[in-house]
């Protein structure tokens, strides 16, 4: 492909659908890429602090071989528009999460305890600075 020619020009006439062309062949089954087991880069969860004074917030995830690369990739992937002043990356398998199947029982303790909210106390309504 010449550096000055337009690589976009298809072999057929422009824009016409080449219905006689052979179907795109499947990739070579024997290619080293598909036959050799690839080492899978671990998954990292990314947390971004959008400006000083705010917490880091989960932004997404990515794959990287180590923490340094994970940070660089996170910068390129999640802060292309000045979205952050600080990034944390955490190996996904280092995060312990609550069991979604137990959401009822696990979070039931605050239920019925309205008195933990200021709005429970109505008699002071109208009293200033309270």
């Amino acid at each position: 492909m010449s550096p000055h020619g337009n690589p976009e020009v298809p072999a057929s006439s422009a824009g016409a659908v080449e219905s006689t062309a052979a179907k795109v062949p499947a990739g070579p089954e024997t290619s080293s890429e598909s036959s050799a087991p690839r080492s899978v880069w671990p998954l990292w969860e990314v947390f971004v602090r959008s400006s000083r004074g705010l917490s880091h917030v989960h932004a997404g995830s990515l794959h990287a071989p180590d923490a340094a690369m994970a940070l660089r990739n996170a910068r390129d992937l999640y802060t292309r528009r000045n979205e952050g002043v600080s990034i944390w990356v955490v190996p996904a398998d280092a995060i312990a999460a609550s069991d979604p199947d137990a959401k009822g029982s696990f979070f039931e303790s605050p239920q019925g305890k309205d008195y933990r909210h200021a709005t429970y106390y109505t008699k002071s309504e109208g009293v200033k600075h309270l």
Binding site: E45, H58, G60, I95, A97, S98, D99, P100, A102, S105
Partner: peptide, 13 residues
């Protein structure tokens, strides 16, 4: 983009 399939800790045995 999400919390992935994070290891969750069973609430009860």
């Amino acid at each position: 983009m999400a919390s992935q399939n994070l290891q969750s800790v069973p609430d009860q045995p």
